[in-house]
Amino acid sequence: MIMTNVNTVPGKKIVEHFGIVQGSTVRAKHFGRDFMAGLKNLVGGELKGYTELLQDSRQEAMKRMEEQARQMGANAVVNIRFATSSVAQGAAELFAYGTAVRVE
């Protein structure tokens, strides 16, 4: 699956498009991570647990979007955008959306 965040797949010609596909996930960390993050807040620095959480969520959102595109019969997703929101306290919502296309 080709993923791009521009209008086209550079060097390839889009022959067919299927509309938008989206993938989203909401994830929370366990209380231990929250606790460590609270400690880290005192001294500053990277919150590894939270970085990991965001990474995992983003990957899952991408995977779900890819799966949707595959179900539609596409072989590429162009113009992908990411967005986050905080639906719940202590949980991260990540979503990715793009246009499913078929390239030659």
């Binding site: 909401v26 929101s85 949980a91 979503f95």
Partner: peptide
């Protein structure tokens, strides 16, 4: 469910359908 999930971490499944529906 979401509050409980906050203790253990992982996928907050109960919110998934909410954001999906909204979008």
């Amino acid at each position: 469910l979401a509050i409980l999930r906050n203790i253990f971490g992982g996928r907050v499944k109960s919110y998934e359908s909410l954001v999906d529906r909204a979008r």
